[in-house]
Nucleic acid binder design. Structure first.
Lengths: 141, 141
DNA sequence: ACATCATGTTTCGACATTCGAATCTTTCTG
DNA sequence: CAGAAAGATTCGAATGTCGAAACATGATGT
């Protein structure tokens, strides 16, 4: 299946990006969340990454040591720790991730509206199949 | 992007499949290779999974202990160890993985030839973009 | 033949990542 | 205002991975 190869190429990109930044894959996913959602509480990262609170703490530790995020107390709730991206993280984003979106958008220009509709429908259909099969497999039959 | 969600759904399926079989994700990928390629030498698994030889040995150990594969000496080259799937593995395949392919094929029936062409072209284009960006990121600039 | 080198896998010790349970602080509730 | 709940961290244990060394087998040159 061609989808398989696409998956592998995503994997290869993530791998390359992580290596470039000197991070592991988990840290990279965490950074992605922080960049996408602005300052987020640690617990939010925990659920987004499906990691235990303990593991999340150490992920944030590593990113902080790498200079990619900073912790700050939430003024409205001092139990919370807010994690925010640093300038270094934003510049990494600009250098590594933004061009991917641009290249992707560029590549899509060759398709007409009808074709884009088909593509979008396909993506949703494929996702539907995967989710359906995942729940089937999860069932304790 | 919708591709992101598709990726996540693949991830969720793999997660569910691994949990169902009581394996970790690496072991599952290994089993996938063995099922797909018939009896394979351990070194082949090592490169397919991008794991060190040492790690590969322990992956095979775990799968063997789980009753999913068996080791046998390659008659033509006794340094080699051939890893083959067991009946238990084939039945797991039939129960978990085969239906995914069937459901996928079924879902594709709603598209006409032209639409399938567009979809295939898109998948290849997307992969091209990802690979291109991966090599860009890998460059030591 | 045979010493030497190359190939393929395994063993061993070390390191990194994750988890569960316990702890600590802050906030909510009766 | 005492006790429970929420949010994050610390600690020790378990798991997965690696590099280097070891081991067995096969290939090569003289």
């Amino acid at each position: 299946m061609e989808l398989r190869r696409l998956q592998q190429s995503f994997d290869a990109f993530d791998e390359a990006a992580a290596a470039r930044l000197g991070l592991n894959r988990t840290d990279l996913r965490c950074l992605d969340v922080v960049l996408a959602e602005g300052p987020v509480p640690a617990g939010r990262i925990s659920v987004a990454l499906k990691l235990s609170p303990a593991a999340t703490t150490t992920v944030i530790d590593r990113l902080e040591r790498a200079g990619m995020v900073v912790r700050s107390a939430d003024p409205g709730n001092r139990r919370r720790v807010l994690v925010a991206a640093t300038d270094a993280a934003r510049s990494a984003e600009a250098e590594i991730f933004v061009p991917v979106g641009q290249a992707g958008a560029q590549a899509l220009r060759k398709y007409g509206p009808d074709e884009l509709t088909v593509i979008l429908d396909f993506l949703r259909t494929a996702r539907g199949v995967q989710e359906e099969q995942a729940t089937r497999v999860r069932v304790v039959s």
